[in-house]
Amino acid sequence: MDDHTLRIEPLTAARIRAEAGEGLAVLLQDAVHSGASVGFLAPLEATDAASWWLSAAEEAESGARSVWAARGPGEAVLGVVTLVRASYPNQRHRGEISKLLVHRAARGRGLGRTLLETAERAAAEAGLTLLVLDTESGSPAEGLYRTAGWTRAGTIPGYAGDPAGVPRPTTYYYKALERP
């Protein structure tokens, strides 16, 4: 990505709420409508996408979720990544990468990797030592995770439906972090 036209910023709960029905909902709809298995079925209505972001804002406000957005020219939201912290006392050393989304018009230019690195760095700075994530097996995202140093933990057949509702296998990955 061109560093002069791209800016990655953390989003506060208030900012997530303000953009839930606009750029963030549009990004989530684009991901689902282009085939990404991110928990929703197609067609994803704008109100449902905005509702998910409003619940993410509540989690951000409580400190359970952090959100970063990548913005391009004109402040368009081109991608996001979220980091969800584990809530149980014996799991506070770990987190989960969730909703790594890149608008289809911005894919293939390294934005997903940049967002992933942003979340990894923030997790390490927060003292987390282990991250996990899951993705549809065979998806383009798998290549990103493997080349970014993530380790495949295993695959569960028929774990989640794709946007058409067809059960697909899901592969879990983990990455150990070093504190800065």
Rank of each mutant, 00 (worst) to 15 (best):
G74L: 07
S37H: 02
E19M: 03
A70D: 13
A119K: 07
L78Y: 12
A50R: 01
L24Y: 04
V32Y: 09
G112W: 13
A13N: 06
E142D: 06
S34P: 02
L101N: 07
I97S: 01
A31M: 09
L78I: 13
P167Y: 10
P10H: 10
T114F: 11
A69G: 03
G127C: 11
A164C: 02
A36F: 08
E136A: 14
P157L: 00
A49T: 03
A18N: 07
L130N: 06
E59A: 13
W53H: 13
S37G: 11
R92C: 08
L144I: 12
A49V: 06
G143T: 10
R7Y: 05
E142H: 03
T155N: 02
P169N: 07
L128N: 02
N90E: 02
Q91L: 13
A86W: 08
R17C: 08
A57W: 12
G154F: 00
P89S: 13
Q29V: 14
A60D: 02
V84P: 01
H103M: 07
A106W: 12
D134R: 08
T12Q: 01
P10T: 11
F40R: 01
M1D: 13
Q29L: 11
G154D: 07
L144T: 01
D48Q: 12
L54E: 13
E120V: 10
V67P: 09
V84C: 07
P140E: 03
A126T: 12
R113P: 04
H93N: 03
R168P: 06
L41T: 10
A25D: 06
E9A: 15
P10I: 02
A13G: 02
L131A: 09
T47V: 10
H4M: 15
R15G: 05
V84L: 12
E117R: 15
T118S: 05
L54T: 11
Y173N: 03
R65H: 05
L100K: 08
